[in-house]
Amino acid sequence: MSDILKYFRQDRLPHIWCPGCGHGTVTGALVRAIARLKLDKNKVCVVSGIGCSSRAPGYLDFDTLHTAHGRALAFATGIKLARPDLKVIVMTGDGDCTAIGGNHFIHAARRNIDITTIVMNNNIYGMTSGQYSPMTPKGFLGTTAPYGNVERTFDLCKLAEAAGATYVARGTAYHAQMLVDLCEQALTHRGFSVVEALTQCPTYFGRKNKVGGAVELLEWIKDRTVNSKAAAVLPPEKTAGKLLIGELYKNPQPEFCDEYDKVIAQVQRKFDGFRGGVRGCEQNSD
């Protein structure tokens, strides 16, 4: 524990998350992965939008930016392009990332920009007290679906893969050690990496759906997931209706900032005596 405390703004603790919330487990997993990789604190920038998930960077002792609802990836894109040397991490939730911020998510994936996105999926809008989100399973209750949600959910990992993300994994707050490994893999991957972390919201999702408290919710998460490696050898009836966890997709592709730099380098070769700054544009305007 003491080895990760230095990554926290300890004067900002205790946090605001409810008792039994899984967001601390996910945040802990990310920080443990950062500690394992011995990343320079001054070279890590954590960006968030709005919601319970997005409060996490406030507790982390890196450069952090808390932005508008759904827009973390748009801000992060700007940061990464201005300072490609930084390790840019986005912490977001299922509402923030897949509803209001859905467009930014698919386009960040499409560009394959080197940003690691941790999606804390608790299947509900927690901060505004339990409205159903695009990740609330069909039939489940939310305060805006008092008799059950009729909408289908995204398969967020398939969405990320289809949109162009080059590292996609799903973990859970139950499988905490595996989540650390997945965060570590995502952080070392060059390109757009996504870790969907299934996490529990006992206050709204658990209570509204009578699933129970934190422990029961963690068991519910365990029961609805199966390790992707195990699934490959299990009979279909054992995996039907279950979400795969583990590393689901990895396909290194040219990264956006690298491609951008290539174009700049080409242009620089064309114009003799061009003296550019970090991105070759500072002295190119008059």
């Binding site: 609802h69 509803a99 209001i100 809008y125 901060m127 505004t128 007290s129 409205q131 805006t144």
Partner: peptide, 8 residues
């Protein structure tokens, strides 16, 4: 509508 405090 979309939820936002305090009108949610």
């Amino acid at each position: 509508a979309f939820p936002i405090t305090p009108s949610t």
